[in-house]
Design a binder for these strands. Structure first.
Lengths: 179, 179
DNA sequence: GTCTATAATCAGATAGAC
DNA sequence: GTCTATCTGATTATAGAC
């Protein structure tokens, strides 16, 4: 992968995360890259292709995780989700939060949507024979390893090993039925 | 408040939530309203004014909650956050997720940002003399009453009283130090 | 209160030179 | 690989009639 292409992806990651996909223009990206808009089209055939290139990696990793979820004990699954969220933080936020990103990706029917993957993971966490209660607890545990982790990172906090273990323990407590 | 004005707000709520603020054009709104774009400008002086009108109510309610947070026991605070999130669900998602919405609102310095309110509530949940551990648990509890609740609603699930109590209990468990 | 018409600007994208 | 120049269409917003 060429150097310029990677620079474009880095800049796009930052700008898309900050103001959203729809609100980021190719002029914004070109300006920060220090080139013209037209130069971008040598590296990508459209604005949407930049987004596709950005999110394909984390979305694939996440989809694989969902496929393997049923073979993992709940605690290991929660740990895997947590680590994936940490590793892919910026792109994960983009994928999960920005509505214009989601809408663009949903147009491609060949790819699993982030919402579908979410639903799969929650269903696995809710266990076989899910009840309203176990589903609610699954959502709680999932929000803890995903949203709480991203929130800590977004606030500028470092997600060190102590914090990571504490989050994971909280998620496990949330998942288990109350006393 | 006039009937048409309210209709515009309802349509905007729906469209902004679905595709984001930046990706929703006034033509989209006008088309669904069954009028011309120009008619919108009789009711609102700009596109941004529609967004301002939409989010001012939930943002004010949320800011008030943050101001009163220190006087509530943690369980009651978590319950209040949960109920606020349920009551304002769509606008809350818009406020919390869409980057273009956030960017527009952050431009108005007189108003507290949703990120600031989030940070305040987490700080209160982390207790006096917060540690890395108590802060992590606060984030976990907060994500449970906020993100898990919104995720259940977004999936089309009904947040009945059983589910609400289960979420709240999970959040309390997440907040308390592990055994 | 809503319309048509239009201004002014900006978007994504392409052509062709270098 | 990058440029200038340009096309096409969409966007926010305004003017003025009804």
């Amino acid at each position: 992968m060429s150097d310029t292409r990677q620079k474009i992806l880095d800049i796009a990651t930052e700008l898309f995360a900050e103001r959203g996909y729809a609100a980021t223009s190719l002029s914004d990206i070109a300006e920060r890259l220090g080139t013209s808009k037209a130069a971008l089209y040598y590296h990508f055939r459209s604005k949407g292709a930049i987004l596709d290139a950005l999110v394909s990696e984390p979305l694939t990793a996440f989809t694989k995780l969902a496929a393997a979820a049923r073979d993992l004990p709940p605690r290991d699954l929660l740990a895997a989700i947590l680590d994936t969220a940490i590793a892919m933080r910026t792109l994960f936020e983009l994928l999960d939060k920005d509505p214009s990103t989601r809408k663009h990706l949903d147009a491609d029917a060949t790819r699993a949507t982030s919402a579908q993957v979410n639903a799969t993971l929650v269903a696995v966490l809710a266990g076989p024979d899910p009840t309203a209660g176990s589903t609610a607890r699954a959502h709680a545990a999932y929000a803890t390893v995903k949203n709480a982790a991203l929130a800590i990172l977004a606030q500028g906090g470092d997600l060190d090993d102590l914090t990571r273990r504490e989050l994971l323990a909280a998620a496990v407590r949330a998942l288990e039925p109350g006393a």
